[in-house]
Design a protein around this nucleic acid. Structure first.
Length: 720
RNA sequence: GGGCGGUUAGCUCAGCUGGCUAGAGCGUCUCGUUUACACCGAGAAGGCCGUAGGUUCGAGUCCUACACCGCCCACCA
């Protein structure tokens, strides 16, 4: 023990302790005989790259919970996994292909391209799992799951089939968010609106002036719409036809009166392009108007554009404006018009709405929930997905922390439209539906007989992650895990995927199992850079947690992330704070060095509690009592930052600064030496236990060096 | 346009159910090479807790307005 270095070296401890845990297999709940179950699934990391600091925070919080519960005697399952992240991963591979050889997926067969994406995913997956391990996540590797492995694939197909049979999944032809660049549509939630300054054109359209940012879509505009209460246009009647000169010829336009028109905006009159705009589409639906496509899926003009047929959007726009100007129909151009355009947030292009036949999940359609364990929805009663999602949070069966996210959640549900679940990309779960002539067949396996063709589309990646709370436990098989660990105890994740993921898990679990997926949702905030900017690789401000871990130690990183972060709020990442926590680890190390060098007792034989012989004794024992109580209370209330701060305060300023100083004298006093040693050991060991969930490596390491044969991770949580 | 969050020391942030003489880390200053630790110790400077009202014996903490910053949602042609 005399060879211990003055400064704590995290790298040694981290490697050794990970090996120790692995060898003892302590994180597999099957090795734990008793205890109430506690289950938490790791939010499956996208196999699009490596883990970032946000993951580090996520893992830290989750692991605190897992280790704490384990020490409390819960049969604890922390289940690791990764997500194939369909569109994001494919977009990544496509981007690399293009950068390398100027090739796209269309230069390969579906099989060839799929292989490339799978390779990429596999590669990235092993990096991520290695990182997860290095972060000290006390997960059970024997239950590792991947959204595209065999079991999860069966779960996806089964879920699809059952929801299809319930009529909750259906095929419909309607306007969807089409991305011409990635050649797929995406859900409403995947759209990112970006501000853009563009030209706003005013054209003469018969007796009216219409404004538009999209002249190239105006070929099909044979309806002109205005508000029924607009006095300026009161002489026109709904349904009235007028003749007017337009782009390629004279056309007949029909007047439509609709109260969705904003009278204040522009001239209060607009023409509509129902096939490529959601507002226009809704108006057309309402009045049963013709819907004619103008642009094809690649972004070319269709024959309706006449001489502009085949041109790309940008070129056609210019041409149309010129032509209208020649015809004297261009009134004016507002050069600096600011509006927002829809883009595909998954690395795609500008969204061009298109009418397509797609698969949807019906959120408002009543269905019968045969089996329900949800309070307030009886087995066999009728409900809708929306009602279900709302009810479980409203009734408190799912508790969202911090609480104010309830409102955000409800608001999202209220605005929710049917979920478009089919994608035209190749990487993902192919839709388990087969066609033969006009017959449609849905099952987990292909139908027998020839000539059946499977639907080429794949599922939205959130379809498979929506099943995560139970697909990871073996569903659709009725496994023991499923019985023991579902609903999960808690879901910990970033607030940015409340809609994408949390809500979808509620939807899936509710409709397929009649259960909530988890009882508690803990949402953490985002880690930003020191300028409070969102970290991203493209901005070049992303920090690799591994670099930080190497520099300061994993424990220091974990502790610093948790120390300063209150639930649900964003934090700027400050490297200096990690440095401070490295100092704390070192402090702990030296407390241990001091105590062990003054120890003449056998550590395994210190069973009876020490007595308070001096004022210092009394004070530290009181503080010890208090810190156990406080830190436990804070963790129970999900105030991990408070717990961390309290323990930090105790270890450094009570134990080290005060008691150790006092002990130096007491240790010299023969009558008191032994009792002082006992107090020192008790304080140190208790501190190690309280700190273990936060700083697993150093605490486990010291625990071993003290001479314990047991594993700290499975020691009992201190009681006050 | 609707909703949510933030505004506390030079910087980044805590502050749970109202009792704070308002805390932490980093930074700054003074002193100290005491045999656990200089990745240290002792101490100090630094805050009308965004603004204005209100409730209360008492408000950083509750209420009401307002201002600024950020985020989410929404079909501004």
């Amino acid at each position: 023990m005399q060879d211990l270095p003055k400064a704590y070296d995290p790298s040694v401890a981290e490697e050794q302790m990970n090996a120790k845990w692995k060898k003892a297999d302590v994180f597999n709940p099957d090795n734990q005989k008793e205890g109430k179950p506690f289950c938490m699934v790791f939010p499956p990391a996208n196999v699009t790259g490596i883990l970032h600091l946000g993951h580090a925070l996520s893992v830290s919080i989750e692991d605190i919970l897992a280790r704490y519960k384990r020490m409390q005697g819960f049969k604890t399952l922390f289940l690791p996994g990764t997500d194939h992240a369909a569109i994001a991963t494919q977009a990544k591979v496509e981007a690399e292909l293009y950068k390398k050889d100027k090739k796209t997926h269309r230069d390969f067969s579906r099989e060839e391209f799929l292989e490339m994406v799978k390779d990429y995913a596999k590669n990235s997956q092993s990096t991520i799992l290695d990182q997860l391990n290095k972060l000290g996540a006390s997960v059970d590797w024997s239950r590792l799951a991947y959204t595209m492995d065999k079991k999860r694939t069966l779960a996806v197909k089964t879920a699809f089939k059952r929801l299809y049979e319930k009529g909750l999944i259906y095929q419909g032809k309607r306007l969807v968010n089409w991305d011409p660049k990635l050649q797929t549509n995406v859900s409403d939630d995947e759209i990112k609106w970006e501000e853009e300054t563009t030209k706003f054109y005013y054209f003469k359209y018969g007796p009216f002036t219409i404004g538009t940012t999209r002249p190239e879509t105006k070929f099909g505009d044979k309806y002109v719409v205005m508000h029924p209460d607009d006095d300026r246009y009161s002489k026109y009647e709904h349904g009235q036809k007028i003749e007017l000169e337009w782009i390629n010829s004279q056309i007949e336009a029909t007047i439509i009166k609709d109260d969705s028109i904003d009278m204040e905006l522009g001239t209060g009159v607009m023409t509509i392009t129902p096939a490529h705009d959601t507002t226009d589409y809704d108006i057309a639906q309402k009045h049963d108007l013709d819907i004619e496509p103008i642009i094809d899926l690649q972004g070319h003009m269709l024959p309706i554009a006449g001489e502009f047929e085949g041109q790309y959007i940008a070129k056609a726009r210019k041409g149309v404006v010129e032509k209208l100007e020649q015809k004297g129909l261009l009134e004016k151009i507002d050069e600096k018009y600011v509006h927002r355009i829809a883009t595909n947030s998954r690395g795609g292009g500008i969204i061009e709405p298109q009418i397509r036949k797609q698969w949807f999940m019906a959120v408002d359609k009543p269905f019968t929930l045969e089996h329900s364990e949800i309070d307030g929805i009886k087995s066999g009663s009728e409900t809708t997905l929306k009602q279900l999602m709302r009810h479980v949070v409203e009734s408190g069966q799912i508790n969202i922390i911090p609480n104010h996210f309830d409102k955000t959640y409800f608001h999202w549900i209220d605005n929710l439209r049917d979920w478009n679940i089919s994608r035209q990309i190749v990487f993902g779960h192919q839709i388990p539906v087969w066609y033969k002539n006009d017959k449609v067949y849905c099952d987990t396996k292909a139908p027998s007989g020839d000539d059946w063709k499977q639907d080429p589309d794949t599922l939205d990646t959130w379809f498979s992650s929506g099943l995560w709370s139970f697909s990871t436990l073996g569903w659709p098989e009725e496994t023991n895990d499923l019985k023991t660990f579902h609903p999960n105890s808690i879901l910990e994740t970033g607030y940015d995927i409340l809609f994408f993921w949390v809500a979808r898990m509620v939807l899936m679990s509710g409709s397929l199992l009649g259960q909530v997926p988890f009882n508690t949702v803990y949402l953490h905030g985002l880690i930003r850079d020191s300028e409070r900017q969102k970290m991203s690789k493209s901005k070049g401000n992303a920090i690799d947690p591994l670099d930080i871990m190497q520099k300061y130690g994993t424990d220091a990183l974990r502790f610093s992330l948790v120390y300063a972060n209150a639930g649900g709020t964003d934090t700027a990442f400050m490297e200096d704070r990690v440095k401070g926590m490295k100092h704390f680890a070192n402090k702990l190390w030296n407390i241990f060095r001091f105590i062990s060098s003054n120890l003449s007792l056998d550590i395994e034989k210190l069973d009876s509690p020490p007595s308070a012989n001096t004022d210092a004794d009394k004070q530290i024992l009181d503080s010890l009592e208090l810190i156990i109580k406080d830190s436990t209370k804070h963790i129970e209330a999900y105030r991990f930052n408070e717990a961390a701060q309290a323990i930090y305060q105790f270890v450094w300023h009570e134990l080290a600064d005060k008691y150790i100083e006092a002990s130096k004298e007491q240790l010299q006093d023969d009558a008191n030496s032994e009792n002082t040693q006992r107090i020192l050991v008790l304080c140190l060991e208790t501190s190690l236990k309280l700190l273990h969930p936060f700083m697993p490596f150093i605490t486990e390491y010291i625990w071993g060096l003290l001479g314990h044969k047991t594993i700290l991770a499975t020691e009992e949580w201190p009681k006050s």
